[in-house]
């Protein structure tokens, strides 16, 4: 039962991921990405991590995707406008590289004779996640906040230089809050 569910969800995620890069329309791409995120959340549930699954839905499928869609719509791309970056040669090269990575991944999985050690059933609970963040991964957790600070300062510094004509309407996007 679990295997069947895994196969269905896994194939959905892969299919949605493919569609993200195959569709020409950016809005459709973004919607397929949402589907992929929901699929990933379902996979987390299957792995026994409901809290991570909830976060995945809230943060990625919710907040980040809405942001994506807003930006895509603000960019005001017409339907005809597509990205013609790929030539036949590049496409072939990309295919070769992708096939190579797939081969490496398959070879890596071949060595797995026994399944990995089972995890605690409590592993995905909010309490367990919190404990892992604040005890085992305390330093990376704190450094992540430095990372976010850099991102904020960087965005503000870059956007401030845009000339008034170039900046989108509404002073709020200026970064000065």
């Amino acid at each position: 039962m679990e295997l069947i569910l895994f196969l269905i969800i896994g194939l959905t995620v892969i299919g949605a991921g493919m569609m993200v890069i195959l569709t020409k329309n950016p809005v459709t791409s973004a919607l397929y990405l949402t589907l992929a995120f929901f699929g990933l959340a379902a996979l987390y549930v299957l792995l026994g991590a409901p809290f991570i699954a909830a976060l995945q839905v809230m943060v990625y499928a919710g907040a980040i995707m809405v942001l994506f869609l807003f930006i895509v719509m603000l960019l005001n791309l017409r339907d005809k406008q597509t990205w013609e970056l790929t030539t036949g040669m590049r496409r072939a090269l990309g295919l070769v590289v992708a096939a190579g990575i797939l081969l490496v991944a398959l070879a890596a999985m071949k060595g797995l004779v026994s399944p990995p050690a089972p995890l605690d059933t409590d592993m995905g609970s909010p309490a367990a996640v919190g404990l892992a963040l604040y005890r085992r991964f305390l330093l990376p957790f704190e450094v992540a906040s430095v990372l976010l600070l850099i991102a904020i300062i960087g965005v503000v510094a870059m956007l401030k230089q845009k000339s008034p004509e170039q900046a989108p309407e509404g002073g709020g996007t200026d970064g000065r809050t």
Binding site: P140, V143, A144, L147, I150, A151, G154, M158, Q161, K162
Partner: peptide, 19 residues
Amino acid sequence: IGLETMSVGLYCLAGIRFE
């Protein structure tokens, strides 16, 4: 996380003359 903190900082610094 150290690598990403460094890299994101460098992306911002490279583009600091955004205009």
